[in-house]
Design a protein around this nucleic acid. Structure first.
Lengths: 227, 227
DNA sequence: CGAAGCTTTGACAACTCTCAAGACTTGTGG
DNA sequence: CCACAAGTCTTGAGAGTTGTCAAAGCTTCG
C-alpha cells in the first residue's frame, strides 16, 4: 500500500464527499486536508487489524474491503462487506478504542485517511457532526441486527434468498460485493454450501448466475423460498 | 405497565445515574426531570415494537428485557439480552429512526423514561455527551460483532462454552440473563440443543447448573472445548 | 507454463432441527 | 387448599441439512 501525492485542493474536494463531513465550512475542510492523505492498495492488503487503535478516519473512495473477526476456534468469519463509497470503523477510531475487526482489501482500492484528532476537534465544535456520525453508526447497527436475525434462519437456501432479495435493484439484478467465499462466510456458511444453494435456486429458474453478477428472474418465488 | 408517581428530586437522582448523562450540570438535570417518568411492568409486557419510532429514552433501572427481531420466515430471534442497569436503543431514539427490534420484559422491571427532545437539546449544547453516547453505541456494536462471529462456530457446544466463558465473574460463577429458551435463541440454536449442550458440559464435570445459576468448575477445560 | 486460489460437484459422517412426551414450576380459579 | 392450565425444561428418536474431505475445472499472476 502506498501514498498518492495529492494537491491540497483535490484533498478538500475529496473530504467534502465524505458523507458526514460535507456540511463543514471550507476553512474547516482546509484544516482537515492538512493532515489527510490518499493511499492505494491491492487485493489482500490489510488496512488494519483487530485490536489495533486507529489514528485516522478511513473513507473508502474506490474498491472494496471485508471486515473479519477471529472466532474462538481460530478461524475467521466475515462480519461485513464494504463497497465504495463507505466510512469504515468510524466510531472506534473517533473514540480511540481498539478496532473490533480486521480489514482486508478485496480488490484494488483507494482510501482517504483523515487525522483522528482533527476530526475530533471538528465534532466538538460542530454538534451536528456528532449526530450525523451517530446516524452512520446506527446504519451499521441496523445491518448487524438484520444480519444476526438472518443467521437464525434454519435453511441455508433461505438465508441466501433473503440476502439476494435485500440487494437487488429495480431490474432485479445485483453484483456480489466480494468473492463467493467471502459472501458465504458473511452468511454464516461454507463456500460449498453457498455454491449448492445458488445451484438449487438456479435449477428452479429463480436466478441466473455469471461470476459475481446475479439476475433474479422470479422475485415472488424467491420471496417464497425464505419461509 | 403503569406509571409510578415520583417526586422531582428523586427523578433528578435517577437521571444522574444514567451513564452518559451523569456529567450534566444540575440545572440541566432539572430540565430533563420535568419531562421524565418512571414506569413499572411485568414479564411479557412489550416496551416497544420493531418499526416504531421512540419518543423517549429508556433507562432500565431494574429487571431485564430481551430484544427480538422477526426473521424473514416469521419466527423471532433474540438479538440482545439486557440486564439492569442499561440504556436501551439510545441511538435510534435520539435520531428519531424506527426501532430495529422489539423489546419485551423478561421479569418485573422499572424503566426510566426521558423525553427525546430534551435529551437532544442537551446533546447539542454539550458536545461531550454525543461522544459518550457514541461510546455506549460502540459497546453495543462490539457485542454484536462478537455475537455474529460466534454464530460462525460450527459446534453448538463450542458456542455455549464461549458464551459462558464470556460472562463468568472471578469465582467462575454466572447467572443467565434470561430464560434458557431466550439464551438459546440468542446463541442461534433451539432450546433442546442448548439443554443438551449444558448437559454435555455438566456430564464432563466442567460446569454445574441449578436453574439460571451456573458454576464453572474447570475454566481451562472449558476453554479447550471452544476449539 | 506452473503455481496458487476460487469455484463446483460428489460422498459420507456428524450434527442440529423437528416432533413427541414427560417432569417440573408457577399462577389462577374453584 | 387443591386442581388445573400454561409455560419451561429435559430427554428420546428419526429425518434432514450442513460441514468435512476429496478431486477436478477454471482463472489469474508471475
Amino acid at each position: 500500500m502506498h501514498t498518492v501525492q495529492t494537491p491540497r485542493e483535490t484533498l478538500v474536494d475529496r473530504i467534502r464527499q465524505v458523507e458526514f463531513l460535507s456540511l463543514l465550512p471550507s476553512e474547516h475542510l482546509e484544516l482537515l486536508a492538512r493532515s489527510s492523505m490518499i493511499r492505494e492498495g491491492d487485493k489482500g492488503e490489510v488496512l488494519f487489524r483487530q485490536g489495533q487503535v486507529g489514528a485516522q478516519f478511513l473513507w473508502l473512495m474506490e474498491g472494496g474491503l471485508r471486515l473479519t473477526r477471529t472466532q474462538p476456534d481460530g478461524r475467521e468469519k466475515v462480519i461485513h462487506l464494504f463497497s465504495s463509497p463507505a466510512l469504515v470503523a468510524e466510531a472506534a477510531i473517533l473514540l480511540g478504542q481498539p478496532l473490533p475487526a480486521t480489514a482486508t482489501l478485496t480488490g484494488p482500492s483507494r482510501i482517504l485517511h483523515i487525522d483522528r484528532g482533527a476530526v475530533r476537534e471538528a465534532v466538538q465544535t460542530h454538534p451536528d457532526l456528532a449526530l450525523n456520525l451517530l446516524g452512520s453508526v446506527m446504519l451499521r447497527l441496523r445491518e448487524l441486527t438484520r444480519s444476526l436475525a438472518n443467521h437464525g434462519q434454519s435453511s441455508g437456501v433461505a438465508r441466501v434468498a433473503a440476502y439476494l432479495l435485500g440487494r437487488v435493484d429495480e431490474s432485479g439484478a445485483l453484483v456480489l460485493p466480494a468473492s463467493k467465499k467471502d459472501v458465504a462466510s458473511y452468511l454464516g456458511m461454507q463456500p460449498e454450501s453457498f455454491s449448492r444453494a445458488l445451484a438449487a435456486l438456479k435449477q428452479q429458474g429463480l436466478i441466473e448466475v455469471r461470476d459475481q453478477q446475479i439476475q433474479v428472474c422470479d422475485l415472488a418465488a424467491l420471496s417464497a423460498v425464505m419461509r
